[in-house]
């Protein structure tokens, strides 16, 4: 990766590895952060995979047609948000079943993205530039790890911080949580449950779309049918195992991305560790770590928003 002499340990450049970790984790982190807000508002949207893949093609098409990756990330986020609003219309206005609708959203997204993507196979997207952080980028060790990334990596971390602050310190965050815990009480207090949930869904969809666009514009970078290949489901799992807390979602996403990259690097460096163990390590380590944290804090079982997945009808 041309980052000069980093810290070499056992033949692996740890600095380059840590830098790759941040890139590999970003799509899942974005999608999981978005889903966290939707679930905190009491909506279970299983369509993350579908929103991500629509973000991947929407972002790719936007970037290629406009020549600007920034425009691509915006169109990617919009594509994801539109998918989420479709889900919101069906589940919040027409009161359809959330689980079935979410699964349908994923199938719809995979199909529609394949159709839109036909003309974009084999096309190279405009490069997403790294942010120039001047002297910071030249710091030993920390420079290459932390300060030589594109803006989306920083944006994703800022988003986690913003979501944490929003949920814990803001009045609107409190309202959102109230809607997710007990929508009838929130409704009785005069809060507009459906509007709050549509907003949360749109945010979740935009974040998932951004994650998908990061996949097609930076991490791979190209459009391939079905290219999310299950990343949306990993994001969903991380929200649950992270017991609906922003900081644990960050930890889970970085653990998963980190161990994925690490095990591939260990293989490439020729370590004599059984490959099967390495291959399942990202799943096992992430789940075990998050379950242990949740168990120690005794919030795990009760952490799910009480109204998660339940249908709200104002006339009741």
């Amino acid at each position: 990766m041309g980052m000069g002499a980093g810290m070499i340990l056992g033949g692996i450049d740890l600095v380059a590895l840590a830098a790759m970790l941040m890139v590999a984790s970003t799509p899942i982190l974005l999608a999981a952060t978005g889903e966290l807000i939707a679930e905190k508002a009491g909506v279970l949207n299983l369509g993350v995979e579908g929103m991500m893949i629509m973000g991947a093609i929407g972002g790719f098409a936007g970037a290629v047609l406009s020549g600007s990756p920034e425009v691509g990330f915006v169109t990617g986020a919009i594509s994801g948000a539109l998918m989420a609003l479709l889900f919101g219309f069906l589940t919040q206005v027409l009161l359809s079943n959330q689980v079935a609708t979410g699964l349908a959203l994923t199938l719809f997204g995979l199909g529609l993205s394949a159709l839109i993507g036909k003309g974009f196979e084999g096309v190279r997207p405009p490069a997403t530039g790294k942010i120039d952080l001047g002297a910071l980028a030249d710091l030993p060790v920390l420079g290459p790890i932390l300060f030589r990334h594109d803006w989306v990596v920083y944006f994703s971390i800022a988003l986690v911080v913003a979501v944490w602050l929003f949920l814990h310190l803001s009045r609107s965050g409190l309202i959102l949580r109230a809607v997710g815990e007990n929508h009838e009480a929130a409704h009785a207090l005069g809060y507009r449950v459906v509007a709050v949930r549509l907003g949360a869904l749109a945010f979740g969809g935009a974040a998932a779309g951004l994650g998908g666009a990061y996949l097609s514009l930076v991490r791979v970078p190209q459009w391939t049918e079905g290219m999310t290949a299950g990343a949306g489901w990993i994001a969903l799992a991380i929200v649950v195992f992270g017991s609906w807390r922003a900081e644990r979602v960050l930890l889970g996403a970085y653990l998963f991305g980190g161990v994925t990259v690490l095990q591939l690097r260990l293989q490439a460096a020729g370590y004599a560790i059984p490959v099967q163990l390495l291959s399942m390590a990202p799943y096992v380590i992430t789940i075990v770590a998050l379950v242990i944290i949740s168990a120690r804090h005794r919030h795990g079982a009760q952490a799910a928003p009480a109204a998660l997945g339940r249908i709200f009808h104002a006339s009741r």
């Binding site: 990766m1 996949l215 490439a268 291959s279």
Partner: peptide, 24 residues
């Protein structure tokens, strides 16, 4: 140098595997 991806199709993982080999 060999990396086993344990998948036939996962563009992100295939890209990561390529990056790991390039880093080697």
């Amino acid at each position: 140098k060999v990396v086993w991806a344990y998948t036939w199709f996962d563009p992100a993982k295939e890209a990561d595997a390529a990056a790991a080999l390039i880093a080697e």
